[in-house]
């Protein structure tokens, strides 16, 4: 489930509020708020759409988890999904890296 909106990185652009398919976030006067965490379906899409790598979705789908933001940054886990699918400039070539055709028919 979504665990972190990093106040240091967040620019209050509210993209996450818009793109979350299950409406987990609320706009505020400042940075968005995780208002309905239990509605999070752990699809990682808010993280993918965050241009500032300010969000972190914990992979635990059914229960909240304590998260150490400093450790996440240290391990460069913030933004790791975006980099893996090529949604950042330096890894754009990965957008066409799908090798599913080598896996089908197994």
């Amino acid at each position: 489930m979504i665990e972190v909106i990093d106040a240091e990185r967040c620019t209050a652009c509210d993209i996450c509020v818009n793109v979350c398919p299950t409406n987990v976030f609320d706009k505020t006067d400042g940075i968005p708020r995780i208002a309905r965490q239990s509605d999070c379906q752990t699809c990682f899409l808010c993280e993918l759409y965050c241009p500032e790598d300010a969000l972190f979705v914990s992979p635990f789908a059914d229960a909240p988890q304590a998260v150490d933001v400093a450790a996440l940054k240290e391990a460069t886990l913030l933004g790791s999904y975006r980099r893996a699918v090529g949604w950042v400039e330096e890894s754009r070539h990965l957008r066409a890296a799908d090798r599913s055709y080598r896996l089908f028919g197994h």
Binding site: F44, S58, P59, Y81, A84, L94, A97, D98, R99, S100
Partner: peptide, 20 residues
């Protein structure tokens, strides 16, 4: 080789593993 293809084909499959 298959492991490499999997990583390229579906990065989010690995998020639960890499993050735990």
């Amino acid at each position: 080789e298959t492991r490499r293809h999997m990583r390229m084909s579906q990065p989010n499959f690995f998020l639960p593993f890499d993050r735990t």
